[in-house]
Design a protein around this nucleic acid. Structure first.
Length: 451
RNA sequence: CGGGGCGUAGCGCAGUCUGGUAGCGCAUCUGUUUUGGGAACAGAGGGUCGUAGGUUCGAAUCCUAUCGCCCCGACCA
């Protein structure tokens, strides 16, 4: 993309309404525009990152065999009457009537609808296990939306639902989600710690939240510092092996890590003092096992091998996709702007032409721009007739992890500059070598970790 | 929903107390000179002062109502 042709309305000054760093940078980088309290338009740059995050979530869900579908944002009230939640959910649910006076609602979650889909089409144990998920906009009418996309009223969420024959099978689905989530967050450059949590209105017995440590987080968290060192990495995992998957979950959940909701001071006190940490975290996902809470009232049953009709065991699992943008920025920025992890960056590399209009510099940039595209990567080429300082400030703000700087002075010696946004370190090298380096960097990133 | 604050040009703000027909910086457009870390000069465009009533010869400014947004709290993925 040529910056001169892009739509990226950057702001030099901080918008008055933005209090936290991710909100400020998203507004300043022209990623979002607020349309109402807690409701945002996603401008091209923000939309691009949102899609990258979505892509990673899709890939990791499908890698473990979960099936994508898409349910509507608007739902009929009757479904929610079946589960009893139409009355329980309260004012947070946005209720709407259509022209025929039918009661509708803008879905805050989809347990009822997915259960309806399941019961309509599945009646045999042979169709289990089954996990369906979608990535769809949700609406929860928060009393006080805040922090930009971190706590919007409208937000994009991946929500998945597993259907299993019994509790053991459903707990395996729970564990499978935990492992797939760990990998999903790692690909986004995040350390998200699973913490024992409260189930809230979803209900159920077993639940973990995934929290990214950040001083601006809304939850107070108590943890053993050793949990922050755990990494799933590239290890191969057979997701059908219940014991192996459970072992990984044990590895990530044995050390103490809890939110204020479930904090146990006596257990916390047993951690060696040097590793005992209190901090704040941003919740970026949650997994639940709730058994037959929905399948019983809504009659989602299957016939087993013995002919008996039994309600299925279920769980639901969510990742806050739009919230992740805020969480990633909170976890990765400096005083100049965002620093995107390679896995989610909107463009893989920025190209800065220090002297637009100089025939040699222009030609070198054009050649680099084409080379990047041939690698299957995207460059953002700043071809504007602007001074270098402004170009660098813009690049720093929008946070592309790598930048190639091209100017007549370097070209005299046959070199361009390759700069890491994260370290700020620049290296001079011939253009071909810079391209090769970029290719190498993204080779390990773009397709994600091996399974 | 309780407490506090703010709505004036795309963004950041002054002007409101003490009424006299709207201003500054950045951004935008034109021209010239510039160009290796947010350029300089000259000129230009852009505002029903959130909205609706009221008071007044006259309202951004005073009064009433209303809408919206932000912050703290309670609530929540």
């Amino acid at each position: 993309m040529r910056l001169s042709r892009y739509f990226m309305p950057v702001l030099k000054e901080n918008p008055a309404e933005a209090q936290i760093v991710s909100h400020r940078y998203m507004l300043r980088a022209g990623m979002i525009k607020q349309q109402a309290a807690g409701i945002y338009s996603w401008l091209p740059l923000g939309f691009k990152v949102l899609k990258r995050i979505e892509d990673i979530v899709h890939q990791e869900q499908q890698r473990v065999g979960h099936l994508p579908l898409l349910m509507p944002t608007l739902q009929p009230a009757d479904l929610w009457r079946e589960s009893g939640r139409y009355d329980d959910y309260g004012q947070e649910m946005l209720r709407i009537t259509d022209r025929q006076d039918r009661e509708m609602l803008y879905g805050p979650t989809n347990e009822e609808m997915i259960t309806d889909i399941f019961r309509s089409h599945v009646s045999s144990y042979k169709d289990l296990p089954l996990t369906l998920y979608h990535i769809q906009w949700k609406f929860r009418d928060e009393m006080r939306p805040r922090f930009g996309v971190m706590r919007g009223r409208e937000f994009l969420m991946k929500d998945g639902y597993n259907f299993d024959i019994d509790k053991d099978a459903a707990l395996h689905a729970y564990n499978r989600h935990m492992v797939s989530y760990l990998r999903t967050y790692e690909r986004m450059g995040l350390t998200a710690i699973p913490m024992r949590a409260d189930s809230g209105p979803i209900g159920g017995e077993d639940t973990h939240e995934f929290l990214v440590l950040a001083s601006t987080g809304e939850s107070e968290v108590f943890y053993d510092e050793a949990v922050t060192q755990l990494k799933l990495g590239n290890r191969a995992v057979d997701m059908t092996d219940r014991a192996a998957v459970a072992a990984i979950c044990a590895e990530f959940t044995t050390l103490y890590a809890r939110t204020d909701e479930t904090h146990k001071p006596d257990l916390f006190a047993q951690i060696p003092e040097a590793r005992r940490k209190v901090g704040r975290g941003i919740e970026v996902g949650q997994i639940f096992y709730f058994g037959t809470k929905y399948s019983e009232p809504m009659k989602a049953t299957v016939q087993g091998p013995d002919g008996a009709i039994v309600p299925v065991h279920m769980g639901s699992h969510g990742i806050g996709v739009s919230r992740l943008l805020g969480a990633i920025i909170e976890a990765s920025h400096d005083d100049k702007g965002i620093i995107w992890p390679e896995g989610v960056t909107p463009f893989h590399v920025g190209i800065v032409n220090l002297k637009q209009g100089d025939a040699q510099a222009d030609a070198a940039c054009e050649a680099l721009y084409k080379s990047v595209a041939l690698l299957g990567l995207e460059a953002l080429y700043d071809d504007r007739d602007e001074r270098a300082g402004g170009k660098f400030a813009t690049m720093d703000l929008i946070g592309l992890p790598w930048r190639i700087t091209v100017g007549p002075r370097g070209l005299k010696n046959g070199v361009v500059e390759l700069t890491s946004r994260r370290t700020g370190v620049s290296e001079e090298m011939p253009p071909e070598q810079a391209i090769a380096r970029i290719a190498g960097i993204y080779q390990g990133v773009s397709g994600g970790a091996a399974s």
